[in-house]
Each structure stands twice: as C-alpha cells, then as structure tokens.
Amino acid sequence: MPVRRGHVAPQNTFLDTIIRKFEGQSRKFIIANARVENCAVIYCNDGFCELCGYSRAEVMQRPCTCDFLHGPRTQRRAAAQIAQALLGAEERKVEIAFYRKDGSCFLCLVDVVPVKNEDGAVIMFILNFEVVMEKDMVGSPAHDTNHRGPPTSWLAPGRAKTFRLKLPALLALTARESSVRSGGAGGAGAPGAVVVDVDLTPAAPSSESLALDEVTAMDNHVAGLGPAEERRALVGPGSPPRSAPGQLPSPRAHSLNPDASGSSCSLARTRSRESCASVRRASSADDIEAMRAGVLPPPPRHASTGAMHPLRSGLLNSTSDSDLVRYRTISKIPQITLNFVDLKGDPFLASPTSDREIIAPKIKERTHNVTEKVTQVLSLGADVLPEYKLQAPRIHRWTILHYSPFKAVWDWLILLLVIYTAVFTPYSAAFLLKETEEGPPATECGYACQPLAVVDLIVDIMFIVDILINFRTTYVNANEEVVSHPGRIAVHYFKGWFLIDMVAAIPFDLLI
C-alpha cells in the first residue's frame, strides 16, 4: 500500500533555474538572501570558489559584500557603492579590487542584480563577478574607477581610450546646418538635424578633445543650467548677453562664444560640459537660429522629431539603469545623424518603425519583477520565466494532490484497515475457520451469522477504491517536481505499489 509523501509542494524551481543557467555559462556568482541580516550568502558556485580561493563552506553565510576579499588596494568608495546597491532595488555595476585567499590582487567587475517577489519586494541578490585585470595590471588604489561605466561593446579594446569628441564640431553647429540641408533625401539625416562627426583615429590627448566618459557625465550638469543662461549661451556672438549692473557675465554663455574659444586653444572642462549641455537642449539648428531671432517656433511634425517616441515608452518600462547606459552608448555611435529632440514631445505622434532597438522591449506582467540581467542570462521568455513566489501546480481535472487534506485522511483510514487485516486475518484463519468446520452448517442466516465476513468484505472494497484513487494521485519525481499527468501517474504506480495493492485487495476469504 503506498505511503508516498512529498510535502515540499507547491515547489518553486526558480532558484534552481537560475543556478542551472548560470552554471551553463561558466559564470562566477553568488546568491544572497536579502531578508536576513547583512544579506548572507546562501549559494556560491564553483567558479566563484576558484576565483577567490575560498571553499564553499568558508563563503556560505558570510555577508555578500565580500568584505573578506578586501585588501589594501580595495577602494572604500567601491565598497560603499556595493553596500548601497544592496540597500536599493536597481541593478548596478561596480569595479573593485579584490584579494584572493593567497593574497593576489585582481580588479573585478561586480554586477549586483536584485530579484523581487510578486509584491515588488527584493528577496534575493545575485552578484556576478568578472575579472577585468590581474594584480600586475591593477593601478594605484588612489585612482577611482567606479565613477565610470563599463566599456562599450562596439569599441575595440585597444581603442576604448582613444575615443574623442571634438569640441569644434559642437561649436560649428550653425555652420554645418547648410551642408545638412543640402544633403536632402540623399543624406542619412532628416531636415533640421545636426550631424556630429566623431574622430576615432588614435591621437595624443589634446586640450581640444573630450573623453567619452566626460560626455556621459554632461547629463548630470544640465539641471544646474538655468533657462535664461541656456538661451544666452545659444544666442551666440551676435547678441551678447546682458548683465545687470554690478553683475558679471555668465561664464556659461561665454563658453560657447566662437570668438572667445578661437582665441585660446584650450577650454576648461567645466565650460566644455556646460556648452555641450546647452546645445543638447535645442532640438535642431533651426531652433538655434530661432533663439537668435527671439522667436522659438513649435517643433515640426516630421520623422526626426518622432524618433524618440518609442524611446520614451522603453525608458518607462525599463527595469534597470543598464538600459540608460545602453541608450547613452548607442546615442554616441560615430558617423550617424543625431536628432536633438526633447523627450517631452507630442504624445499624438505616431511611433516610426526603427531597425535598431535601443531599449529592451516591454516586459510582460509575469516578468515585471525580474531584472534585465536575470532575463538576459536565463534566456527565457515571458511565458517560461515565473515570478519568485509559491505557485500552485497546474493539475488535470479529477486529480488528487498527494499533500491535500483528503489524501491525508484517506491514508490514515487505509492504515487502520491494514492494521485490522494484519490482526484479524490470522485470527480468523486459526480459530474461526476451525469452529466453522466443526459446527453445523448455517446457510440460512447468511452474513448475519458471520459479522467478521462483512467487515472483511468492506475492507476489500476499500482497498479496491484505494487502488483507483492512487491512479489519480500526484507524486514527486526525482527532481522534486509534482507530477499531475494521468499517464505518468499510471506508469509510476504500475512500477511501484500496484502489484502489492492488488494482492492485498483480493478477497481470499470469499474465494475459499
């Protein structure tokens, strides 16, 4: 008679799926529990143990900040960024110097990925580790590398530091407007667009060049630039800015003055950032001319202004700041037409079709709590990747769950009947059967004279019903998954307890 339990259901295979997918890609990662103190490590794979030199037993239950890997060259700011990422709910990448158990130093890129439950609360953290440099290539500990984003994938490793954006290309926007319009339909740009040429040739750093990471940081200074100062900065030398009595002219307006920039070969870094931020506020060169004239017309309804409409929906549905990093990277690809469009465009503009998908598509409701890094690593669709929660398995109709209350009560009843059979069957065979043979035949009273025979008949009927119930009862397979398919249940029961239950259900007393 089957006594099969499996009270692990309803099970959740999400954690096993993450481990299996990460292991298949030869990654070095740990999984931490966000619900406990210090976000203790609950799993670390073999790749991480080989990377740091510690065994799994030495890593388990330690804080996922990996303070046991810190050393003299470990930056405090990087460690603080990892700790801050564990307090938030967004994906974050941090470069930090770690030390192995043998004392060797290596520069590592740590990717902190939160995993949320159905309520939107962070319950786990996945920390992925990628070695960037070994100890002989690690720089000085005073050099802070965590304020910069990861290198873009479309640049060669040897040319990542030679990417320079020439400031004269930004200063000569109005001069290039006529050349853009003359391109017409034969050019790649839309009317009114501004073409910015980027020099990728390796050259020595000069005062006129600005690194790509500095251009990325310009967006942080746009908020500090007032509207009046932006307007004066875009007017140009024809209309000098008016300053109040006793007030000095704005240095932001002076930063885009061609006369002032041409007199000296070098520009201050602050002026460069502010000038680029001011130019980015204009949607095209037409807006710059309109600002000089004193009238700013409404933005025209053409394809170039609607190019950012799908980007707005993608940004609203993005799951991490990696989408913004990807957008900034692609927006700086050289030799393309940049349409400086305000994100607050007309909502009635139709979304044009684009061959290049900048932001990841909208994630469906079932995966809105899973970050983009987890979705990318697992390579699963929205119909396959579940949320991290207890999910009731989908069972067929008329199927009994093996952990249901009805099955528990039924098993206790069958257990009592088995005990009765084990006690009274030998007793009936030894004593009652002998008395029946010696006594007179009682054929007239039937079952009324033999109450134990009636009980034995009921017990046999219950055993037959138990066999039928076992054909529709779920079970737990070797992978700790609840199986509810009727065919698989029948095959599993035939290979197991079916023969024993059938022999126990045969009414031998009635056959004798």
Rank of each mutant, 00 (worst) to 15 (best):
A89M: 14
D136S: 14
L155S: 06
G345Y: 06
V295G: 12
R328F: 03
S255Q: 12
N45I: 01
G306P: 14
S55D: 08
F348E: 07
T337E: 15
L171P: 13
N369A: 13
V195P: 06
T162S: 08
Y43C: 01
N128Q: 15
D323S: 08
L316W: 14
I359L: 12
D346P: 14
A175W: 03
I30E: 01
A78G: 09
S179K: 15
T152M: 13
M124S: 06
K362R: 13
M308S: 12
G186M: 05
L385G: 05
S209P: 05
T367W: 15
S140K: 14
S304V: 14
E95G: 03
D346F: 14
G224A: 14
P241E: 08
D213N: 01
A9F: 14
A260N: 12
D102K: 01
V110C: 11
A193C: 15
R356F: 12
A40L: 13
L173E: 14
L311T: 14
G306R: 12
G149C: 06
G226V: 08
D67I: 13
S182W: 05
P72N: 03
D323E: 14
A172P: 14
L380C: 07
A121M: 04
Q247M: 07
R269C: 14
F14E: 12
Q376M: 03
L109M: 06
A282L: 12
P205G: 14
L155R: 12
C66T: 01
V122A: 14
K161N: 14
A228R: 09
F129T: 01
K332T: 08
Y99A: 01
G47V: 01
D342Y: 02
A89P: 08
L170N: 08
G226M: 06
S209N: 14
I19M: 06
K362G: 06
T270I: 08
L107P: 15
E208T: 10
F14I: 06
R62S: 12
I30N: 01
G6D: 07
D355M: 14
M291S: 09
R280G: 10
I42Y: 01
E134P: 10
P310Y: 13
A83P: 15
Q376S: 09
A282G: 10
T329S: 13
G183S: 05
A78I: 01
H70I: 05
T319R: 05
S207Y: 13
D355S: 10
V110F: 01
E214R: 08
L170A: 14
H309N: 14
S104H: 14
T74C: 01
H302T: 06
R181T: 12
L107K: 13
K135Y: 05
A83L: 12
G71P: 01
G381D: 09
D111E: 01
A228W: 06
F163H: 13
A32Y: 01
R181V: 09
I363T: 09
G238V: 05
R326N: 09
L107T: 10
R73Y: 15
R62L: 10
G184C: 06
L171Q: 15
R273D: 14
P205V: 06
S209E: 08
G71A: 01
D136W: 14
K373A: 12
G345M: 14
S284H: 08
Q25I: 07
A260H: 15
K344E: 12
S209F: 04
A211H: 15
I333C: 15
R292I: 12
E208P: 15
V215Y: 12
K364M: 10
A78Q: 05
S284R: 03
D323W: 07
T145I: 06
Q84T: 05
D16W: 13
I358E: 07
V370P: 07
R292L: 11
N369V: 07
D321P: 10
L349V: 11
T319A: 14
E95K: 12
M291E: 14
L170P: 15
G139K: 06
A228E: 05
G120Y: 06
S55W: 01
S278P: 14
N12D: 10
A32W: 01
N146H: 05
P299I: 08
M60G: 01
S178E: 10
D323I: 03
K344D: 13
A290E: 15
S354F: 07
A203K: 13
A203T: 04
